[in-house]
């Protein structure tokens, strides 16, 4: 055991009264204790840590768990070790799926939408996506990158891409003056969520919170891909019962779906000369995401009867 680990372990033992400690995984660090598996996080930015502590405090509820910090014997939510801070969290292993858990996911998402909020100060520019699509298209057309079969398809998609970009811009511009935004960890995803005692365990991790609409849109899309249309429909119906999402959230999540990021990604891969099989894979990935987004928007609109 190296010195640093030794120091960390004795600090954990002294502050959280763990008798046994054994490293199970290094990154992120998971240790086995007599009280179960625990996740240990090391922070070098105390301001961010404090922000995370109060962020989790806002989300305390008895329906689902968030990865709250354990308090030390003296009641602090972290241990100070030199210029670092160390926190201890629960570390459940079982992955949470959407299918079969739709009602609790709906509760969780509605709580996140209502409470995981912060003021925003960055003025988002509207019409940015459309301009971006236009300039990329022009640039690639002039350099002749739309020549191969994949390139031709990407070019053929351009009018729809432009249309979607325009829709995304228009939805975002409606709410560009909002003072508050849903915030989520950049890592928020279905895959990182855990199941614990028949409910959910949401990881907030230790990254700075970001605009949560992207995370929500990605979460819905992951659910659609993993659990299928029916599961997402029943999840949407549960959400609708709770009056979630509000107009602003709905618009901004839909804008994320309309945002043709998969197309940008595809054209980007065109310029990196790669093998045919890789191109086929990229193309396939593009088609799948495009298709899922189309179907998800359709499903969302049919459940929430939103005018397009």
């Amino acid at each position: 055991m190296n010195d640093n680990l030794q120091i960390l372990f004795s600090a954990l033992q002294a502050n959280y009264h763990f008798r046994q400690l054994k490293v199970i995984k290094e990154q992120p660090m998971i240790v086995e204790t007599e009280r179960g598996l625990k996740k240990i996080r090391v922070w070098n930015d105390e301001r961010l840590l404090r922000r995370h502590v109060s962020w989790r405090m806002k989300l305390i509820n008895d329906r689902f768990f968030v990865d709250r910090m354990y308090v030390t014997q003296s009641g602090n939510p972290f241990i100070r070790l030199g210029r670092f801070a160390v926190t201890c969290h629960d570390a459940p292993l079982e992955r949470a799926t959407l299918s079969g858990n739709e009602p609790i996911w709906a509760e969780t998402v509605s709580t996140l939408v209502a409470k995981s909020r912060d003021s925003v100060n960055n003025h988002e520019k509207s019409t940015v996506i459309r301009q971006h699509a236009e300039s990329i298209f022009e640039q690639y057309r002039q350099t002749g990158l739309f020549s191969g079969s994949t390139g031709k398809l990407a070019a053929a998609c351009y009018p729809s891409v432009r249309e979607r970009a325009e829709q995304a811009d228009s939805l975002r511009s409606r709410h560009s003056r909002r003072s508050e935004s849903v915030i989520l960890p950049d890592t928020f995803s279905l895959g990182d969520s855990r199941s614990l005692l028949d409910t959910l365990f949401i990881e907030f991790g230790q990254k700075a919170p970001v605009n949560g609409y992207r995370g929500l849109a990605r979460f819905f899309l992951d659910g659609f891909r993993e659990s299928g249309e029916e599961s997402v429909r029943s999840f949407f119906l549960c959400l609708k019962e709770k009056g979630v999402p509000d107009r602003e959230t709905a618009d901004l999540v839909r804008a994320e779906w309309f945002d043709p990021s998969e197309w940008f990604w595809l054209v980007d891969s065109l310029s990196n000369a790669s093998e045919d099989s890789q191109r086929d894979q990229d193309l396939q990935a593009f088609k799948t995401v495009w298709d899922h987004k189309t179907r998800l928007i359709g499903l969302f609109d049919s459940v929430f009867s939103q005018p397009v």
Partner: peptide, 13 residues
């Protein structure tokens, strides 16, 4: 007794 998260009272709905 405080919980492991430091709450004296676990609040439910």
């Amino acid at each position: 007794l405080p919980s492991k998260y430091g709450d004296l009272v676990v609040r439910g709905e």
